[in-house]
Design a protein around this nucleic acid. Structure first.
Lengths: 243, 243
DNA sequence: GCTCATTTGTTCGTATGTATC
DNA sequence: TGATACATACGAACAAATGAG
């Protein structure tokens, strides 16, 4: 007979879990250090080796990083290293990436609507921020995007200086100002004909084929914090992804 | 003063590297077991703990997997678990994936050409396999793709039974029959108007906007083994990616 | 169903090296 | 220089899963 409900959970795993929960509860912010191996070992009555194992697992999972001689720190957004700072536009495989400039067109509070609120995991009644941006390469618009963020989560967003939005990625801004790092994204790709608004923003003919990308960005606990629609008319350039 | 050119390489790291090199040289195929901890420790004159560390690193990097009581095995393609078995088509976030059927339209040897041979890392003179396939959902074509593979690497491909290509993914077929697992992919997305061939294959009007995906697939040592062009006209469905 | 040899998983503790400030 | 903190390495003991007999 199987033992009744006793899957003996390893000590390192319990420790790992409680640390992760503390991180997700915001006990330490990204960049801050957590207690040393020794103190974690004493507090939890386990050996240093067991603490090491727990911490190394969290490092591999991207939640922590360690520096010899300094300490163990909470990691921030894991994927902006190279994965997703703005868009990665290439002419072909092996080409170098196109530099992009950002322009903030509009940022305002709007009533919630479907399906945005559903994708953000909030009730339909809650208000949203709507942010419209254009990304340019050599002055020509190549990407137009509209982001929706829960108003409740990001109070004061409209009060930030406009050029901040044009200097750092939205990921950085949200992590630094609100403490939510980006853990992963979901994307849906399709091709559509440019409508009036998109054609105008990208300075192309209405009806031109454009790449359409819908995106959900997630922070801790699989909580979505942004829903974004992007429209790309890249000329001879293409959107790059690595898996 | 700094020691002259001696960044003392840890024992676990040397071991890890030699094991990885053996895997890449094909000493063991995907699914086969490598020596036990004990024998690796004795052969390399290091402790069990050091062997454990080396092996666990390779597990985290996706090259190995271990089963308690059985042994340590060479992992195959890492991303077909859910990432890339055919395409992941969704109507919207949260939707379940569309089932796809594959039809092999054509498989033949053709002369090499640019840029395919460059993307495959082989001289322009070398021959290629050209494979055309259609993916259907409820009988309707949704993805048309053309793959190019180095003829030299995959001798005998045309001799395999046709229905094999329609039963398993190309990843599995290549791993099982030729021992090359897929380590990562590069993709380029854009939107184009369907040309004659694409329109015919997808049973849509010429000039309709279609999602165009170019892909390079890589195996060990960052060696590309496939260059693929896909054309998607998914109706209300979209191509899903997770990062 | 049981036992046994094998193999990996977990935990402990110690000693020493190396980076940081 | 010294104190602190993480990194490497060793090895022992026991637990748990596997498969063969």
């Amino acid at each position: 007979m199987k033992k009744n409900c006793s899957p003996p959970i390893p000590a390192y795993y319990r420790l790992q879990t409680t640390i992760l929960e503390d991180i997700e509860k915001g006990r330490w912010k990204p960049g801050e250090s957590i207690p040393t191996e020794r103190s974690l070992a004493e507090l939890n009555r386990v050996s240093i080796g067991t603490v090491k194992k727990a911490l190394l697992n969290l490092v591999h999972e991207g939640y922590l990083y360690r520096v010899q001689g300094k300490g163990t720190f909470v990691a921030g957004t894991t994927l902006w290293k190279e994965s997703l700072r703005y868009y990665r536009l290439l002419k072909s495989f092996g080409d170098c990436e196109t530099e992009l400039n950002v322009e903030l067109l509009e940022l305002k509070v709007i009533p919630g609507f479907m399906p945005a609120n559903r994708y953000l995991g909030i009730p339909e009644g809650q208000k949203l921020y709507e942010m419209k941006r254009v990304f340019r390469s050599d002055g020509r618009p190549v990407v137009y995007n509209i982001s929706y963020l829960p108003h409740k989560l990001f109070k004061g967003l409209t009060g930030l200086p406009k050029n901040l939005f044009e200097k750092v990625t939205l990921y950085e801004l949200i992590e630094k100002n609100y403490g939510y790092p980006t853990i992963y994204n979901h994307e849906l790709f399709d091709a559509i004909e440019a409508g009036r608004e998109v054609a105008k923003a990208l300075e192309i003919l209405k009806g031109s084929p454009v790449l359409h990308i819908e995106m959900q960005s997630f922070t801790y606990k699989d909580k979505p914090y942004e829903y974004r629609q992007s429209y790309c008319f890249c000329g001879n350039r293409k959107v790059f992804r690595e898996t």
